[in-house]
Amino acid sequence: MTLGTSTRLGLFLLLAPILVWLIALLVLPHADMFLVSMREKVAPRTYEFSLANYAEFFTEPLYWRTFARTAIMSIAATAMTLLIAFPVSYYIAKMLRGRLKSFLFLLCLVPFWVSELVRTFGWMILLRESGVFSNVFQWVGLADAPVEMLYNDATIMVGLVYTSMLFMVVPLVTTLDSLDDAQVEAGYDLGGNAFTVLREIIVPHAMPGIVSGCIVVFMLTLGNYLTPVLLGGKDSLWFTAQIYTQFITRFNWELGAAFGFLLLALSSLIVWAGLKVTRQTLTETMG
């Protein structure tokens, strides 16, 4: 098919904003970052091509262990978010009708009107040694001294799950909404119980929503900086904090850039493996 000049111009103009956005904000910085990651400082202001930055990640245990820890905790956070969000989404999508349904759905959205930073500080007010929970525990008599609930892995997990909830609930509600009630009833009518109906009918139907929700939550969690650093403190050992340290504290842009690309590559690998294990495809999920 040949397009007229004016049609082609129109198409170009339509595509221009997205192309500018993609090239200027994604492709160019990443290309430059990639080049930075592939060089080594041999003397002041002299660089040469090297893979040393990448090698450092694998030879220095702190780095790859930090990454492994981040990945495992992100997977755990994703799984917990799914476990909590699924019943919530099912309730919103299938049990409720009309205004209450939209109201509860909106309620899931409300926390996101506040910036993540403010929300995280909210958690800190609740959980710190001199915070609300600590005082309540002492007042009730559950504790004799102030309790510090910040700066541990459990707190990081709570924060991550809380932050991710919406991104799991939205795709789940959307897919569960499209499940015909008659399917569930047929599942029971033919002898299924709550568990088999869930396993054979509801979950397979919701699979695209589960997969896309999990991918989004996993990526957001893995790349999260604020929540682990603020709630986990120095010991959070989150990989993004490691990247931040290289860029800002150590001025080692080369290593930081290499870490950035490793994060991208390794997280993509984990998502790919996840899709393989659950026998889903990206096109099925997104299409």
Binding site: D180, A182, E185, D189, L190, G191
Partner: peptide
Amino acid sequence: NKRPVNMVFQQLALFPMMSVAENIAYGLVR
């Protein structure tokens, strides 16, 4: 699920993620 009657739904409610044979086998497996 314990009543000895079964229902054919208006929109049939066949399970789209299962094959024809799996649909028929569903109740027997249960």
